[in-house]
């Protein structure tokens, strides 16, 4: 084998090389975000526009899903608790489950599907139709306008959406508890707030910020690096959702370990 052919041979295998190159590219993309986020010019108008799109336009879907999750989880938990004569614990159980895990997870997964795919497809389509190049040649930083604004918007809006989902899910749960156990709203919410601690809320907000950042940065990265025309746009949207969801579960697991360690101290 000639020396030239040997040089062209991938170090491990094509897939491994592609994986590690992709990882390195993603890391430099994240680093670029942090190096540009604090520097002027600030695209406030675009950030607000994206916050509106990500936050307000997601409200109907989040409301419906959160409400259904609250009702379903309450109805599924009731038989088991009733069996042990602990039906009165329903508000406590639901509040802990919703605030600690279900609210952030459900919101993040829905946002990954709705927002992540839309960011990936939008930026991907701008890339293949040379709109990003057009911004660059008009002396505008497309990274700042497209990426920084969207990542900031998801990082800010997902925690707010999570709080909203928690509220809507608890309202759904209250309706079910009220209809079956005849518990008043004040009694229900007193039990809810007695059960959750500051650490629960802190971990929920921390997770939501992480989830929001992940959804934004993955969607932007996939869109910004898409190629192969319209096929590439589809792939960008698809992989933005798949990778975001995968990372969300990993982050959930990691934060859970940290919070449990703190709880045990």
């Amino acid at each position: 084998m000639s020396e030239e052919e040997d040089d062209k041979k991938p170090f491990l295998s094509k897939k491994f090389d592609k994986f590690f190159t992709g990882l390195a590219n993603a890391w430099s993309f994240v680093r670029r975000f942090f190096s540009e986020v604090f520097l002027p010019p600030y695209e406030f108008k675009e950030i607000i526009h994206q916050c509106y799109r990500i936050g307000v336009e997601s409200l109907p879907l989040i409301s419906l899903t959160g409400f259904i999750v609250g009702i379903v989880f309450t109805n599924q938990s009731r038989p088991s608790l009733t069996e042990f004569g602990a039906a009165s614990w329903l508000p406590s159980l639901i509040s802990i489950a919703v605030v600690r895990a279900m609210g952030p997870l459900v919101t993040a997964l829905i946002a990954a599907g709705k927002v992540g795919s839309s960011i990936g497809a939008e930026i991907g389509s701008m890339k293949v139709t040379e709109q990003i190049d057009a911004m660059e040649v008009s002396a505008t930083n497309p990274f700042k306008f497209l990426v920084v604004s969207r990542v900031l918007a998801t990082t800010l809006m997902i925690p707010l959406l999570v709080m909203y989902t928690d509220f809507v899910a608890l309202m759904g749960s209250f309706l079910s508890v009220n209809a079956n156990e005849k518990v008043s709203m004040s009694t229900f919410f007193v039990q809810v707030f007695e059960s959750i601690t500051f650490l629960d809320i802190f971990s929920s907000v921390l997770k939501s910020i992480l989830f929001g950042f992940t959804i934004g940065i993955v969607g932007c990265y996939k869109g910004y690096n898409s190629n192969k025309g319209t096929e590439g746009v589809g792939q960008a949207a698809n992989s933005a959702v798949v990778i975001s969801m995968f990372l969300i579960f990993i982050e959930e697991l990691l934060v859970l370990q940290v919070v449990n360690a703190i709880r045990g101290m």
Partner: peptide, 26 residues
């Protein structure tokens, strides 16, 4: 770049913006 105008093959107009916003952008 401010001294160079680049007209792209497929026009590269920002499709989420109106013509006015496209021209305001730079």
């Amino acid at each position: 770049r401010l001294k160079i105008g680049f007209s792209f093959q497929n026009s590269a107009l920002y499709d989420s913006m109106t013509v006015r916003e496209n021209m305001e952008f730079p």
